[in-house]
């Protein structure tokens, strides 16, 4: 089984996101692995452990700092890692998906996984776009994928705890919502060992695509309301909350 996982390096939303012109000030933010990618890597490794095969993780190196994420993927069980050396922090999903699809084309993938979404998917997610560019069907929001022969059984999540099961003939692209198990932990020592010993294959970006979106403005949301903030030490905050709840008959 040959599984390719396409990952996305995105600005961290844990910190402030400064704006420059009509976009994020990419020079002033940290880039991190899209959180759903951890699940798609886990899903791929689980399938490899069940039926054998190889897991290749490929991503666009937007700012020259993708190696950390790739070493982490190796420490979690990926066999091979590839970076597309784009050096373009503003590359949108369409452009990244095109580069990824071109890189994946020659890999003979039985399945391509991507995170179901990323917080900067303003022009949509890379998963369905890679599927369109590779002419493969796409299914997103997956919570479990099992493979038997040339067919995968895919569980897709719906709201309210409902799930749907599909039988999918390989090859296809999946947008992973969650792996059936929480993403495994990779010890720092193992990641460090990968950083010292592993080879990251480099591929030049090939192909062009654009979101077709003209950015007019980027700013923190216009706030229509704001919470009444409770100030003070944690103890004071706690006292005020308890008082509030008691006054409303909720405690």
């Amino acid at each position: 089984m040959n599984i390719v996982v396409a990952i996305k390096h995105i600005p961290s939303i844990a910190d402030d996101l400064p704006v420059k012109g009509n976009n994020v000030d990419f020079d002033s933010v940290d880039f991190v692995l899209n959180e759903w990618d951890e699940h798609s890597i886990e899903q791929a490794v689980l399938i490899k452990e069940a039926v054998g095969g190889t897991v290749t993780v490929v991503g666009v190196d937007l700012i020259g700092e993708l190696d950390n994420a790739l070493h982490l993927a190796l420490a979690k069980g990926a066999d091979k890692v590839v970076k597309i050396t784009a050096d373009d922090p503003a590359a949108d999903s369409h452009q990244q998906a095109k580069w990824l699809a071109e890189a994946i084309k020659g890999m003979g993938a039985d399945m391509v996984f991507a995170g179901v979404q990323a917080s900067n998917d303003i022009d949509g997610q890379i998963g369905p776009m890679i599927a369109a560019y590779l002419d493969m069907p796409y299914i997103g929001g997956t919570s479990a994928i099992e493979v038997s022969g040339s067919t995968a059984t895919v569980s897709k999540e719906f709201p309210g705890g409902v799930g749907m099961k599909y039988a999918v003939t390989l090859p296809f692209v999946a947008g992973v919502q969650s792996a059936p198990k929480p993403p495994r932990y990779a010890p720092v020592s193992k990641v460090r060992q990968m950083a010292q010993t592993a080879t990251v294959e480099k591929v030049a970006p090939s192909g062009e695509a654009s979101s077709g979106l003209a950015f007019k403005k980027m700013a923190p949301p216009v706030v229509t309301g704001h919470a009444e903030m409770i100030e003070g030490s944690p103890k004071e905050v706690a006292a005020k909350i308890v008082e509030l709840l008691k006054s409303r008959g909720l405690a």
Partner: peptide, 21 residues
């Protein structure tokens, strides 16, 4: 969960823009 499966795929397939979120 359903719109997300189709919108961006259609965008790439037809080469027309998609605005999400």
């Amino acid at each position: 969960v359903t719109g997300m499966d189709v919108a961006a795929w259609l965008s790439a397939k037809l080469g027309v823009p998609c605005a999400a979120y």
